[in-house]
């Protein structure tokens, strides 16, 4: 199975994860400061800054695009409860 390296900058930790893993599946377990509200892509609480490797994440769905826009998200922001890690190296921190 393909893997990717997901680094949580605020806790200095990299996790080797299977391709297709959502950030939400990891971040709470490692104590990263990314926080969650609805966990279903609606509230925007889990806004996450992608510091590196944005091209290695899944494309945002129509729902995620809408919520990002309504939450005035920056170009490098994604919802941790929605986006999947696909390959390569990705570095994130709470937005």
């Amino acid at each position: 199975m393909a893997h990717a390296k997901l680094t949580f900058a605020d806790v200095s930790l990299t996790v080797n994860v299977p391709s297709g893993t959502r950030i939400i599946e990891i971040s709470e377990k490692v104590g990263a400061g990314i926080t969650y509200g609805c966990r279903e892509g609606e509230c925007g609480t889990c806004l996450t800054r992608i510091e590196d490797g944005a091209e290695n994440l899944s494309e945002p769905s129509v729902l995620e695009q809408r919520v990002l826009k309504e939450n005035l998200a920056g170009r490098n922001d994604r919802l941790a409860c929605q986006c999947q890690v696909l390959s390569g190296e990705i570095r994130v921190r709470p937005a």
């Binding site: 930790l13 990299t14 990891i26």
Partner: peptide, 12 residues
Amino acid sequence: AEPREIDFADLT
């Protein structure tokens, strides 16, 4: 802090 690296399977 020293950067650390772990595997997904190590997470409990």
